[in-house]
Design a protein around this nucleic acid. Structure first.
Lengths: 359, 359
DNA sequence: ATGAAAGCGCTAACAG
DNA sequence: CTGTTAGCGCTTTCAT
């Protein structure tokens, strides 16, 4: 910067002003400074800038998600980055893999970097450690899972309602034995999706059968295994509700291995690429990951901007997408594992069905 | 930091030493300082640190990719983040959307932030502007696409070979009219995949027919449209090679709409989730995105560590995965759009085929 | 083994 | 409109 000032024949303050778009600098000097900077390949040092600057203009935010490899989290990342990028803010993102220790460590790191705000999908179950930083002016927004032991803004899907709709949809096709495949975590979405299931089962006047409820299907593999086990019981379920995309993937694998994808109904929570192209198409309660990310970013930037309204929970709606798997009617015969695909499906191996949206 | 020093009853130099794990500090003082830091919720300011530090220990690297929403780029991101994270380095990632201006802008931003290195999937076609920074000690590694007008390390897939294998595979199933669906960009991978196609066609003694070569299938939609057009010609191709995952997705859509997925062969470049679950399974030349990212990160960190060996291009191997779509033999009758799915496929709507790897 | 002082590159307060 | 002066919070000499 010294050299730029020298080359342009001005003081460093003026150089600073030029790069901060201070309108009080004469146009002639601006161009001289810009030219000098270009010649010397000068790029203002952001670290020094952040160090001195007292005004609240944000320059960086942190983002903590479970795993970018999963398109659901990747979409949230994308939405946050788009929002921030449009405002000249960079985002420091890291994968947590649902590891609470990693969460603590990375949050500390982001605090050290004095990020102007933080958006996170938490891994741990106690976020009180963030209270201090919050009070010090670093806003935190929780996405997908609300904070625990801390008052902070959050953005979540309407899990209970989504699950409720899904199961009601299955019941409306005559199913009286709808299995539940969900994950074991205590983070809010999991229990809420289960509650939605329970509510729908009760309202339909059906019996809650614990033997067709699996709440430890955390991975695709365990979900597939549980699913197979359920289907080979003496009185197998005629429909499945899977509470997250890995469970849905697992169920699809099990169905495929057992050859029953055209007989057993399925609705999954959370959409996934190519679900519309499988046969039958996979009906889902689609979440809106971009919506979650965008609302999260919007709320964060409002807080950074000084908004001090009461902390709130923002709910992003889900929507049921009927593609076939969720519209398979309950079979008359309760049991029977003999493959007997509906004739129509066989004769026309290309159901032209386009995504049909309901609800 | 002042307050921590005061509370611990030591000088700030000592506090600094404690946080830099300087072994010359007495254990008793270390614990006193740590306690004080905890009590005051002190987190050393990374910006100030970066400002003063002369030693070359990296703290942040930049990563520029086209779009995290696509699992291919997301996997590269994940691999880079894992590698960096294990070394205590954070990564600043941004999406470029193949916009060259954005590339310039974001690179400038990363330079301003004094990132210790940069990994990028370039959007533009002239990277000479990086020469200066490179000389100033900021290593740059290109992933997926090599640099243009700049000498820098790069990590790429063996595109020509992969495409060549794919087409040869199709030819070995009797196909003599293999269509090509690729993108129009001039970035190396696109022309190389085309070259592999041409080479295989020539070696098989087939005639190059420009009417079944489409090099402007940049999006899923245009690929689908081109594909449909080709299939409704008077002498349609009996097999397709699609040079990137969006083209493959487009072809799948077209096949599905025309109901010919069991008659027309298809091999795509780059794998995609659920390709193994479609019927027929989608045969692909799989890339190794994690490998690309990991090698890229490894090379970058070596450069940061002072490695000054000659710039190199690292090639990550692809592998052919046969799942069914690429093993559909050429039909005797050259034309005919009448759906006539092979009997076997119809009677057994659940081919238990597992991924079979070749090559 | 510890501390005092200097200064990284910038922006904020004041002058002029 | 522009320049001067004084730090931001840290790490680095250089003393002790």
């Amino acid at each position: 910067m010294r050299s730029v000032a020298a080359l342009a024949g001005v003081g460093k303050t003026t150089v600073s002003r030029v790069f901060n778009l201070d309108p009080t600098v004469s146009p002639e000097i601006v161009s001289r400074v810009r030219k000098a900077a270009l010649a010397l390949n000068y790029h203002p040092n952001q670290a020094a800038r952040d160090l001195r600057r007292r005004d609240g203009r944000p320059s960086t935010i942190g983002l903590l998600i479970p795993d970018v490899s999963n398109v659901f989290w990747a979409s949230i990342f994308r939405a946050v980055e788009d929002f921030a990028s449009a405002r000249g803010v960079r985002v420091l993102a890291s994968n947590l893999d649902d590891d609470a220790d990693r969460e603590r460590e990375l949050v500390g790191n982001l605090i050290s970097r004095r990020v102007d705000g933080l958006i996170m999908v938490p891994a741990g179950f106690d976020h009180s450690y963030l209270h201090f930083q919050q009070r010090l002016g670093m806003p935190v927004v929780f996405v997908d899972r609300p904070p625990l032991l801390l008052a902070a803004d959050s953005v979540v899907s309407d899990c209970r309602e989504g699950a409720y709709e899904a199961v009601r949809h299955l019941v409306s096709y005559g199913h009286r034995r709808v299995a539940f495949l969900g994950e074991s975590t205590a983070h809010a979405p999991a229990p809420l999706r289960y509650e939605g299931y329970v509510q729908a089962v009760h309202e339909a006047g059906l019996r809650m059968d614990p033997s067709i409820v699996k709440r430890d299907a955390d991975t695709e593999d365990t979900a597939a295994a549980e699913c197979k086990k359920l289907l080979s019981q003496r009185n197998p379920p005629t429909a499945f509700f899977t509470a997250h995309n890995r469970a849905t993937l697992g169920a699809l694998e099990a169905f495929s291995d057992l050859g029953c994808e055209h007989r057993v109904a399925l609705i999954g929570f959370d959409d996934f690429p190519l679900f519309d192209r499988l046969r039958p198409g996979v009906s889902v309660v689609a979440q809106d990951p971009r919506g979650l990310g965008e609302v999260g970013a919007r709320v964060l930037f409002q807080r950074i901007g000084g908004d001090s309204s009461p902390v709130a929970q923002h709910v992003v709606k889900t929507r049921l997408i009927a593609r076939g798997s969720g519209e398979i009617p309950a079979q008359r015969s309760s049991a029977g594992t003999k493959p007997r695909p509906p004739a129509a499906q066989v004769r026309t191996p290309r159901p032209r069905l386009r995504d049909a949206e309901l609800g």
